[in-house]
C-alpha cells in the first residue's frame, strides 16, 4: 500500500500558451508511474513555488517557449529557496539557446531540455535526480 511515487509539478510560467510539450511530458511522466500535478497556463513564479511546497513535489518542470525563461525560471528557484524548499529539483524546457542554459544552470536550474528531447530522456533524468 505504501508506494512512494515520484511527485512532479509541471508548470507553465509566464503568458506563453503553447502547452503541447508540457502536456505530452505530463502524460509520459504519468505513464512512468509518477504523480503529476499540472497547473495550467499563465502561472506566476509565486504560484508555482507555493504549489510546489503545498504539494510537496520532488521535481518542478517549467515549460516556456516565449523567451521569458531567464526572468521566470531563476525566480522560481529563488522562491523555493526562501520557502526552505530548495531540495526540490527544478527543470526547464522550451526554445532556449545554449548560452541561456548555462546561465540558468548557474542559477540553480538542474537541467534544461530543448526541442527534440525524448520524453524518456526526461523520465530517466527525473528518476535519477530524485534518487540522489
Amino acid at each position: 500500500m505504501a508506494e512512494r511515487p515520484i511527485r512532479v509539478l509541471i508548470a507553465k510560467p509566464g503568458l506563453d500558451g503553447h502547452d503541447r510539450g508540457a502536456k505530452v511530458l505530463a502524460r509520459a511522466l504519468r505513464d512512468a508511474g509518477m504523480e503529476v500535478i499540472y497547473t495550467g497556463l499563465r502561472q506566476t513564479p509565486e504560484q508555482i513555488a507555493a504549489t510546489a511546497t503545498q504539494e510537496d513535489v520532488h521535481v518542478v518542470g517549467l515549460s516556456c517557449l516565449s523567451g521569458a525563461h531567464l526572468e521566470l525560471f531563476p525566480r522560481v528557484v529563488q522562491l523555493l529557496k526562501e520557502q526552505q524548499a530548495d531540495d526540490i529539483v527544478v527543470l526547464g524546457g522550451g526554445t532556449i539557446p545554449s548560452e541561456d542554459i548555462t546561465a540558468l544552470k548557474k542559477q540553480g536550474v538542474a537541467e534544461v531540455f530543448t526541442p527534440g528531447t525524448s520524453t524518456q530522456e526526461v523520465v530517466e533524468f527525473v528518476k535519477r535526480s530524485v534518487q540522489l
Binding site: L29, A32, E35, I37, Y38, G40, Q47
Partner: peptide, 21 residues
Amino acid sequence: NSPFSGGALLGDRVRMQDLAT
C-alpha cells in the same frame, strides 16, 4: 480514478489558481 497503477495526472488546481498564493 487514476487509470495506471501508481501514476496519476492531477489537474484540479487549475481551477484554483488565484488561491495558490
